[in-house]
Amino acid sequence: MQKYIILIVSAIVVWFLFFKEGEVSIGPGVYAIDAPEQKTKSTAKTFQVNGYTLTEMASFKLKAKVLSKKNYSLGRETDLSPVDLALGWGRMSDESVINNITFSQSNRWYYWRTDAYPIPRREIETSSANMHMIPANEFVEDALKSVKKGDIIQLVGSLVNVEANDGWRWRSSVTRTDTGGGSCELIWVENLSIVTP
C-alpha cells in the first residue's frame, strides 16, 4: 500500500513540475500602475514575416500583470503568434482585486467572470485585454515561453495589422476602450522581460 502512495505522490509531483504551466503570486498591491502607451505612426512601416505582410499602426509599450496565458498550435494565426496573454494594469494588476475574478482563454478570446465585482465592470474592461503576441526574434519567443500567470512583464513593440496574398487579414485594436470582437491587440514584440518582484 505504501508503495502505491509513493507512486501516486511521485506522479503528482512530476505533473506539477513538467506539465502544469505554473502560477506566480506576489500578493496585494498595484504592480503595473499605468495603462499601455501607444503613439500612432506618422508613416506606417510595412515588412514581411513568414509570408505575411505586417503594417505597424502604432508604437506600443506596457507594464502589466499576466492574468492568463494560452499557447496555440492550431489555426492560421499560429504562423505568427504562438501565444496570447491576457494582461491587466492599474487595479487589474492587484491580486486583492483579481483574486475575485476568474479568467480563461480559448479560440483567441479572453473571458472573465465574477460573482461580486471588486471594482466597477467598466474598469475591468478597460484595464485588461487579450493580446496576441508576435515575437520579433527567438529571444522574445523564449521569454514568452517562460512567462507564467501572475508574472509582471514589460514589453516594447508595435500594434500591427496583418495581410496575406490570398486576402486573409488580421487586425489589431488601437484603443483600450473597446470590447468584444476585434478588441484584441496584435503586437509585434521587439522586447519582452519578466520583471516580477
Results as ranks from 00 to 15, higher is better:
residue 134 I to Q: 08
residue 18 F to Y: 13
residue 100 N to I: 06
residue 135 P to N: 11
residue 25 S to I: 10
residue 107 N to P: 00
residue 115 D to C: 01
residue 36 P to K: 10
residue 141 E to I: 00
residue 138 E to N: 14
residue 192 L to R: 03
residue 158 S to T: 02
residue 191 N to A: 14
residue 194 I to A: 05
residue 30 V to M: 07
residue 179 T to S: 14
residue 159 L to I: 08
residue 8 I to N: 03
residue 23 E to R: 15
residue 16 F to D: 03
residue 38 Q to V: 00
residue 136 A to C: 08
residue 39 K to Q: 14
residue 77 E to L: 07
residue 181 G to T: 13
residue 30 V to A: 01
residue 155 L to M: 14
residue 33 I to F: 07
residue 118 P to Y: 04
residue 102 T to C: 00
residue 13 V to M: 13
residue 51 G to E: 11
residue 113 R to D: 14
residue 39 K to N: 11
residue 133 M to V: 08
residue 23 E to P: 00
residue 90 G to R: 06
residue 78 T to G: 04
residue 74 L to V: 08
residue 115 D to K: 15
residue 116 A to E: 15
residue 184 C to L: 09
residue 153 I to V: 15
residue 109 W to Y: 13
residue 35 A to T: 10
residue 190 E to I: 07
residue 64 A to M: 02
residue 154 Q to I: 10
residue 48 Q to E: 14
residue 139 F to H: 11
residue 150 G to Y: 03
residue 56 E to N: 05
residue 167 G to A: 08
residue 43 T to W: 01
residue 58 A to Q: 10
residue 114 T to P: 05
residue 196 T to L: 10
residue 55 T to H: 01
residue 63 K to T: 15
residue 125 E to T: 03
residue 106 S to D: 11
residue 184 C to W: 06
residue 90 G to S: 12
residue 115 D to Y: 12
residue 106 S to H: 13
residue 45 K to W: 04
residue 129 A to K: 12
residue 5 I to K: 05
residue 168 W to Y: 13
residue 38 Q to E: 07
residue 143 A to M: 14
residue 141 E to C: 01
residue 81 S to G: 08
residue 95 E to R: 12
residue 14 V to E: 02
residue 44 A to M: 11
residue 48 Q to L: 09
residue 155 L to Y: 01
residue 118 P to L: 04
residue 32 A to N: 08
residue 101 I to R: 12
residue 87 L to I: 13
residue 190 E to W: 05
residue 33 I to H: 07
residue 176 R to F: 10
residue 71 N to H: 09
residue 123 E to M: 13
residue 35 A to N: 13
residue 153 I to C: 08
residue 1 M to P: 05
residue 167 G to D: 04
residue 5 I to T: 09
residue 39 K to S: 12
residue 170 W to V: 00
residue 119 I to T: 07
residue 60 F to P: 00
residue 182 G to Y: 06
residue 167 G to V: 03
residue 110 Y to F: 15
residue 22 G to K: 08
residue 40 T to A: 15
residue 57 M to I: 15
residue 145 K to N: 15
residue 182 G to E: 12
residue 104 S to H: 08
residue 115 D to F: 11
residue 152 I to D: 04
residue 43 T to E: 13
residue 21 E to Y: 01
residue 142 D to M: 13
residue 167 G to H: 03
residue 36 P to F: 08
residue 60 F to T: 02
residue 191 N to V: 00
